[in-house]
């Protein structure tokens, strides 16, 4: 069965291009254009991996989504997906260098990969495949 990927990004062109690229490797794709919709789709679509943009409706929306999924409150409805790998993609300048790690603490951003825009098809595929293998 092909792996399911959820793309959460507010830029429809990026979403479409990512979809084309990932579908060429026979992934099943679902998309969402903001954090709230993304979280809904997590529940309904049950993805194997999430590609997440940072700046959407708010500047840090992607961070909130990743914290909600990765560090769920006890009893949270998202607890089930706390192990789903997240590839974060953002145009935040490289010099701001976010730290990322699969673990969560106050210092670390709980994602598996962090890609700086502009990305290339090859880097996207590599990051996705690497995260899925874990």
């Amino acid at each position: 069965m092909s792996k399911k990927i959820l793309i959460i990004d507010d830029d429809p062109d990026i979403v479409e291009t990512m979809k084309t690229i990932l579908e060429s490797r026979s992934f099943t794709i679902e998309t969402a254009s903001n954090g709230t919709e993304g979280l809904e789709k997590v529940k309904s679509f049950n993805p194997d991996l999430i590609i997440l943009d940072v700046m959407m409706d708010s500047i840090t929306e992607g961070f909130h989504v990743s914290y909600k999924l990765r560090a769920p409150e006890p009893e949270s409805e998202y607890a089930k997906w706390s192990k789903v790998p997240i590839v974060m993609v953002s145009a935040i300048n490289t010099t701001s260098h976010f730290k990322y790690s699969p673990q969560t603490d106050s210092d670390y951003l709980p994602v598996d990969e962090f890609l700086n825009k502009p990305i290339e098809p090859a880097t996207l595929l590599a990051a996705v495949e690497k995260s899925l293998l874990k």
């Binding site: 830029d11 825009k117 502009p118």
Partner: peptide, 23 residues
């Protein structure tokens, strides 16, 4: 610059995928 950067990054991403034959 941030406002310009995002669409520009998208343009580059789309061009790359076009160039590499994904679309």
């Amino acid at each position: 610059a941030h406002e310009i950067k995002s669409p520009l990054a998208t343009v580059q991403f789309m061009l790359k995928s076009l160039h590499e034959g994904y679309g």
